[in-house]
Write a protein that binds this DNA or RNA. Structure first.
Lengths: 164, 164
DNA sequence: GGTTTTCCCATGATATCCCATTACATCCCG
DNA sequence: CGGGATGTAATGGGATATCATGGGAAAACC
């Protein structure tokens, strides 16, 4: 299960969005009628998406990271302490997929993204993201330079190298 | 079964609250006519909710964690020792759901939350919570900052940005 | 007997279902 | 190999169901 590619999808006047076939095919075969959208925890204007099992798996890893195995009962009871997994759960919504592969984008997400006529769906491997098209374009430009620099910096002491 | 999303629900003049469809769908299919509300054990003004089976499962885990496997018989007999699960049971009430998905919020919980015209229902994964809207807003702001800091602290040697 | 709870009906907004259309890719058959 | 046939993806829209809410009336409670 790995979300790849990027695609621009239109929003019709009912607020519906077509889930790209490439992403739909990555959802678990036994749970393709719904998935999860949630606000980015630290990047305003971006909405993340994943399968239900993928989202739950992320929360499990998160809880395991924060507390030890014994912490589960503490998190279940302690309402005062900050709970990252709980925070993400509150910011998430289960979205039903219509039989034809579309879903209606809840207003809260549409506002967060700042959608007008279209959204960019972009694969990030373990998850995918919804972007405002213009903002996505800008981000991509910026990332291109960073990526080139990153690759250049990978092998500082390379004598040979070169490619065919 | 995972409670997600957050939603503001009005209280009508009869004290009734609509259980959001997103939460109702998470209740066990064989037990959707009732659920459990209980006071937060350590955060005044917050009321927790869960399915009956979910609440019972939490009590079981709590007893298993606190006392050993032999603890159940001890708890059944020892009225002198402090019993956390028993304490939670006393603070809990089974709430009936009307056929249309509403329930009447008992006065004790309404007072604890400090409701006026509305309540925020927020998903925490394994359970959900009822909040005073203003207090929830404040908590959310505070948690947002903590979440951003938490994500930042995950990878000590992180050069680039990115989000979770 | 008066208050509270439960059941039922009403309503506006939204979401869902179903059918139609266009574009593009693949398939089939000679 | 070509050209029609078929399939799927993305989009549009009308009809219907569901959600959240309000309120009246019966039923239960003290």
């Amino acid at each position: 299960m790995a979300f790849r590619s990027e695609i621009l999808i239109k929003l019709d006047k009912k607020g519906r969005v077509q889930m790209p076939a490439a992403f739909r095919d990555e959802l678990p075969v036994d749970d393709r009628n719904a998935f999860v959208l949630y606000h980015s925890p630290n990047l305003p204007g971006v909405v993340n998406g994943n399968s239900r099992s993928g989202f739950d798996a992320m929360l499990d890893r998160l809880r395991a990271e924060v507390l030890g195995p014994k912490g589960s009962i503490k998190v279940a009871l302690d309402d005062e302490a900050f709970d990252p997994a709980g925070y993400l759960s509150a910011s998430a919504r289960t979205i039903a997929l219509e039989p034809d592969g579309r879903f209606s984008l809840p207003g809260e997400f549409a506002e967060a993204i700042g959608v007008a006529d279209g959204v960019v769906l972009t694969g990030k491997g373990e998850k995918f993201q919804l972007w405002n098209p213009a903002r996505w374009q800008a981000r991509k430009e910026a990332d291109r330079a960073k990526m080139a620099a990153f690759v250049r910096g990978l092998a500082p002491e390379n004598s040979g190298g070169g490619d065919a």
